[in-house]
Computed example of a mutant assay.
Amino acid sequence: GYDVKPEGGALLLNEDEAQRVRAIFALYREYGSLIPVIEELDRRGWRMKQWVTRKGKLAGGKAFTKNRLYNLLTNVIYTGRVEHQGKIYPGEHPQIVDIETWNQVQQKLNAHGRRGRREYRNKYGAILKGILRCATCDAGMVHSYTRKGPRLYRYYVCVKAHQRGWSQCETKSVPAPDIEQAVVEQIRAVGRSPALLEEVLSQLEDRREKRSEALEREQRQLDRDLRSLTAEMSGLAPLAAGEDASTQVVSDRLADLHSKVGGIETRLAEIRARLSALDGDGLSREEVRSALSNFDCLWRQMTPREQERFVRTLVEQVRYNGTTGEVVVGFRSAGIRELCRSQGDGGE
């Protein structure tokens, strides 16, 4: 709705954008809900404000989501006012939205409980919270619930569908008990099926090798950088003993090189420690099979919160495809190794 004055500071009215802002407020007054407004904005091809940065790069221009639309609808600047330290003051820029329209929109937003809160804590034992992703659009899936009378219905919903409308994702949502049970069954099956056990171990080994290769590449590059910096320091050291004006420049450069060398040496030590840990990540088939053979007994003894921690320890990511019903579980080698160790020690 506004452009910044070239000299900086003042806001100038952009009439084309201002008309869109007024239309968006009118749409929310009509629909009374964020998602239908987003769907209408998508239909019209309207997106967030786009501008060119001082470096000549395009910024903004993203599609509307619930959070972005909510932020626009609650931005007091469109009323010709500004907010400072929780108080509202008259501004020096033109008004786009009248106060009556603004107040009506705020009342509707408050009535729907949309206050920009963070997600509630994991009160209902959502064991896949933070690790479940929608395979059809590669977005996270968040846990939610609804009540009908005394009954509570839990489900996971794709973030894209949640933020931009139900029509934006083929998977949309899945009942929480169904997907959670499917994941638990896959964990249980690893200890029973030789073929699945082989697949999981192969998956873990591939991931271990890729991480090792990435760390080794970084290590080689840092070794080259370290040799280059050390050579430069050796060449500058004799020059630092002089007394002319350039001596301070040389000393400053040496101090900078010392700092960089220290940072590289610290990172190299971290890489060596991680590579050593990865070398010890190998797991035998019998170790994993034995540890997971007691899964049912362990699972029944756990509280919901313990079950959540247990799954997050073993599983790195779960991908769910709502169009095919496929559930793919990616395991953590460190988590399985810890389970093997605890079972070998007789548990706690």
Results as ranks from 00 to 15, higher is better:
E83M: 13
A277N: 01
A111P: 01
I35L: 12
V76L: 01
E338V: 06
V184C: 11
H162P: 08
G242I: 01
M302H: 07
N75G: 09
E287S: 13
E170A: 14
G242E: 11
D206W: 01
Y124A: 11
A255N: 01
S33N: 10
Q50K: 15
S33L: 07
L222A: 10
R217C: 00
R118L: 09
R68T: 14
K87Y: 00
N75E: 00
Y156A: 10
D279I: 08
R44P: 05
M141H: 06
E119P: 13
G191A: 08
V37W: 05
N321R: 02
T171A: 03
S284N: 04
R154C: 07
Q104S: 12
Y78Q: 09
R253Y: 10
E232C: 10
L152E: 02
V37Y: 04
R54F: 06
L278D: 06
R309G: 08
G9Y: 05
R22Y: 04
P238C: 09
V21L: 11
V318L: 01
W299V: 12
V37R: 05
P194R: 09
P90S: 09
Q343G: 14
Y78K: 11
I179H: 00
R164Y: 02
V52L: 13
A26E: 12
R115A: 10
W166P: 04
D296K: 10
Y28F: 15
A63R: 15
L152I: 09
R300T: 12
I96A: 06
E180A: 08
N75Q: 06
L12A: 11
R267G: 03
G191W: 04
D345I: 11
P175H: 02
I187L: 12
R337A: 14
H84Y: 14
H84F: 13
V200E: 03
R188M: 01
H143S: 13
D98K: 11
V105Q: 09
G116K: 02
R68S: 15
A10K: 15
S290W: 03
V250Y: 06
D296E: 13
D16W: 01
E119H: 14
